[in-house]
Design a protein around this nucleic acid. Structure first.
Length: 884
DNA sequence: TCAATCACG
DNA sequence: ACGTACGTGATTGAT
């Protein structure tokens, strides 16, 4: 086995990591985010590569930011901010404590050190892996030397990995030619002048043709754009200097003693003390235990052939079993099973077991209801199994959903997070073991033991966490919520995702086209008024035009400058004709980018349908969310946007839409929970609730309420549901704060039980530490313990709102399960296709229309028995527009 | 990556 | 006095 050495560009990695990490400061007031970010990347790459040797190179004089200016953009690029430079001694201290070899030398950059060390390491028979944030290092890539460039994405670190062939593939030139390209195009941030008039495109073209700078200079007269030809001739000396500057030195006078870089005891007490002093909390575990725990793979059985798999599954005891499909880039790589009595087993797709064969044998397990099945995030499994087996599989427990019910504010319910939360186990994440994306370590490069261990340890975690979760659900009184609402809902959502919704493609294209034309027109008008062109999509540039050039008075509002949000512009509407046009432009731009372009981009070309994902574990209140695309925020309030709903149509002529929505469901829930007689009676008598509130708050007879009074009362009702404040209400209604206070006082005087309920909810939440819905969906409320007024106030509003919004979410979920069930049982050819919080959209077979409408209304209205009736309006149409 | 904006209930 | 309504997701520009 060949040995590996990891060579790290210290400065550029600290810099790169810095941007992916929040600002951390320890008790001594030292910033630690640079150190933290560096260690994060270091450990991640070490886990992946398991190198034998390690060295980190630093620049002795880290440059500060260089100021750059182009296209009206002023900024700073490359180099190291002061705040980060101050951390370098700390990082070096940390590395020394971990016995990591550091290299730095006067007169040489970290690049040169890496270049030299990698050359010497290769001579010594060790394979170098070069790690840097800087693409200049790509010239070191070869058939054996890999250059890894980390990037922080979504809080996680990924790397782009380059061997020589990857450089050629991506840049069209070899690693060595990369130097010549740079000699021609230059690099402002590295003070490499290059040749004027030659940019990246031309430089690559020239080097592809002539391969080397001197050769290009010799043929400079033949080179094509005339400008490039002339300049290369004139500035050839400058190009030679540039090449010299761009070339990394590979023979510095530096000694490389292999053994000095041997990785020793990194996680020693001295290093641990330093980590503690820096308060890098998430690193503690690593220093406490040298190795993270993984499943004990030696106890587990690996199965690699169709015959063995068949025999194994036919003889598998009919007991509670956790399963896990290991997926890589959308492909099933194998199936892990775990039972208490026999431990784990891993069926791996390979030469002697195809995916088809795997599912063929898996049917004995998935098709048999005597196995109590435990899975994780089972909606995808249900869809996959349905595709492969042609029928729906019954799975009794989804550990992701259970974890969400136990704590809906969690950030992730991945298997390693569950292990930590419920089993107190630190396990490597899926990203660490098997990264996603092509630049990461591929599944196929994992050893057999790693593959088996990773898959089985997940199944084991699901099995073990399920035990703990069942106890907690029971203790919390959440069995009904989990087993009767959330688990069955998974199947409903799986169906909705599979059906999708049909789009009238031509109508959508037409809609897009019209927007495009309107946008072009309004843009011209705005530029004519402003006297100059600017990026209309940039609030910053717009702010300058409006508030500086035109002198409108807006004042500062956001962190970064002037606010140009709609409510601000609304107030300036009559100050300048441009304002109204901006508002119109915004409306059009939103419709085009998010909706017209956005929906076309996700439409399936073959079926002309849109398949959204409905997520069941996102919201803090129990609502579901919709992504890629979000079909829960399709425009409806403004006419132009509402038109878009005409493109959502039934699958074929045989179908039409039924749209059913709950009327005032949140206020009804409030009336019920608070037990307020006035409100309850109003709903029982089917009164206009906003009108009633208006008559109460404004002391006018019910029949004499004006339109304005009703609309103001509506805002008050909304405010109550959200946890009202007089300031916000005054902003919303454009009234004084005094008046808003009077409205609220009048409201509470008329609905005393509402006030009582809101107060008691906060009090109780503070005592118990959580709030709950009518079906015992819980949300922990640590904010209420805060000494910070702002945070505590937020907590109070949340405590008031969550039971209302959450109970309404519970109700529609119950209705969805029942409607879905009734349609299936009744053998109807109608299906639920969308849910928008208080609304269900059903695609119904025309002949069943009346029956289905009746089912919809009944099931939705009877989903919950409250002290007020639930009221559902059903509409019919040939598009979502018509049915609303 | 983060902030600003705006679409929905 | 503090800042200022609950819950989401997508797009864009700036850093």
């Amino acid at each position: 086995m060949t040995e590996k050495i990891m060579l790290i560009d210290g400065n550029s990695i600290v810099n790169r990591a810095f941007y992916g990490v929040p600002l951390l400061t320890n008790r001594e007031g030292q910033h630690t985010n640079g150190v933290y970010g560096f260690l994060n990347i270091l450990f991640k790459l070490m886990d992946e590569e398991k190198p034998d040797y390690l060295a980190v190179a630093f620049d002795l004089h880290a440059p500060t930011f260089r100021h750059i200016e182009f296209d009206g953009y002023k900024g700073t690029r490359k180099g190291m901010p002061d705040e980060l430079r101050e951390q370098m001694p700390l990082l070096k201290e940390m590395l020394q404590a971990m016995n990591v070899q550091i290299y730095e030398m006067e007169g040489f950059e970290a690049d040169d050190i890496l270049g030299t060390l990698s050359a010497k390491a290769e001579e010594a028979g060790v394979i170098p892996i070069v790690v840097s944030g800087d693409r200049d290092l790509l010239q070191l890539a070869s058939e054996t030397v890999m250059v890894r460039i980390p990037k922080t994405k979504g809080g996680r670190t990924e790397t782009e990995d380059y061997y020589a062939k990857d450089v050629i593939e991506k840049y069209g030139v070899t690693p060595l030619e990369f130097i010549d390209v740079k000699a021609l195009m230059g690099d402002a941030s590295d003070n490499i002048p290059g040749v004027p008039g030659i940019g990246e495109k031309t430089a690559v073209k020239i080097i592809q043709d002539y391969h080397e700078l001197e050769n290009a200079i010799a043929h400079s007269l033949e080179i094509k754009p005339k400008k490039a030809s002339e300049n290369l001739t004139e500035f050839q000396e400058q190009a030679r200097i540039s090449k010299f500057l761009a070339t990394i030195i590979r023979d510095m006078p530096i000694s490389f003693e292999k053994m000095q870089t041997k990785i020793g005891d990194m996680f020693n007490p001295k290093a641990y003390d330093l980590v503690k002093r820096l308060e890098l909390k998430s690193m503690y575990d690593r220093f406490e235990k040298e190795e993270v725990q993984t499943a004990q793979t030696e106890d587990f059985l690996g199965i690699y052939s169709f015959e063995t798999a068949k025999i194994f599954l036919e003889n598998l005891e009919k007991r509670e079993t956790a399963y896990h499909f290991l997926m890589d880039e959308g492909k099933c790589q194998g199936l892990a099973l775990y039972q208490e009595e026999i431990g784990g087993c891993w069926l791996e797709v390979g030469e002697n077991l195809s995916v088809e064969q795997l599912f063929q044998v898996a049917e004995t397990f998935f098709g048999d209801n005597n196995y109590v099945k435990i899975g994780h995030d089972i909606k995808n499994d249900i869809k996959m199994l349905r595709e492969k087996l042609g029928k729906t599989t019954e799975i009794s427990f989804d550990t992701a959903i259970a974890a969400y019910i136990l704590n809906p504010t969690g950030t992730s319910y991945a298997y390693d997070d569950l292990a930590k939360t419920f089993l107190n186990l630190i396990l490597p994440s899926g990203e660490e073991v098997m990264g996603k994306g092509k630049s990461k370590k591929a599944f196929s490069t994992l050893s057999e033991e790693e593959r088996k261990g990773f898959a089985v340890s997940q199944a084991k975690v699901f099995f073990e966490t399920k035990k703990i979760m069942t106890e907690q659900l029971e203790k919390n009184g959440q069995n009904q919520l989990f087993y009767e609402i959330e688990m069955p809902l998974i199947y409903v959502l799986a169906d909705m995702e599979e059906y999708g919704i049909k789009v009238d493609k031509n109508a959508l294209l037409e809609y897009q086209k019209n927007l495009e034309i309107s946008i072009e027109g309004i843009t011209k008008e705005i530029f004519a008024l402003s006297g100059e062109e600017f990026n209309l999509n940039s609030p910053k540039q717009l702010g300058v035009i409006l508030f500086e050039k035109l002198g409108l008075k807006g004042g500062k509002k956001t962190k970064t400058g002037y606010s140009t949000a709609a409510d601000v512009l609304e107030k300036l509407r009559f100050e300048h004709p441009m304002v109204e046009k901006i508002l119109y432009y915004r409306q059009l731009a939103k419709l085009k980018s998010t909706y017209a372009d956005g929906l076309l981009a996700v439409m399936d070309e073959k079926t002309e349908k849109i398949y959204s994902t409905f997520n069941q574990t996102i919201t803090a209140t129990g609502r579901i969310s919709s992504t890629e695309p979000n079909l829960q925020n399709i425009p409806v309030r403004l006419e132009l946007g509402r038109e878009l709903r005409k493109v959502f149509i039934p699958e074929s002529e045989e179908y039409c839409f039924l749209d059913a929505d709950y009327s005032q469901i949140e206020l009804r829930v409030l009336a019920h929970i608070a037990g307020d007689e006035t409100l309850i009676n109003a709903f029982r008598n089917d009164q206009d609730i906003h009108r009633l509130t208006a008559s109460q708050v404004f002391h006018v007879p019910f029949d004499e309420v004006t339109a304005l009074q009703r609309s103001n009362a509506k805002a008050v009702n909304f405010g109550i549901v959200y946890g009202i404040g007089s300031f916000s209400l005054s902003q919303d209604l454009g009234i004084t704060r005094k008046e808003a206070e009077q409205y609220i006082a009048a409201y509470f005087a008329k609905y005393p039980n509402i006030k009582k309920y809101l107060n008691e909810t906060i009090e109780n939440a503070t005592k118990e530490g959580y709030v709950a819905t009518l079906w015992n969906r819980r949300r922990a409320m640590p904010e209420l313990q805060s000494n910070n007024f702002i945070q505590r106030s937020f907590g109070e509003r949340v405590a008031m709102n969550m039971p209302i919004q959450g109970s309404a979410a519970d109700i529609i979920k119950i209705a969805m399960v029942q409607v879905h069930h009734a349609l299936k049982e009744g053998g109807y050819r109608s299906r639920l296709i969308l849910q928008v919080h208080d609304e269900l959209l059903i695609e119904t077979f025309k002949e069943e229309k009346e029956a289905v409408a009746k089912i919809l209304k009944e099931k939705m209205e009877q989903a919950a028995e409250l002290s007020v009736p639930l009221d559902v309006d059903v509409h019919e149409g040939h598009s979502w527009f018509e049915a609303k």
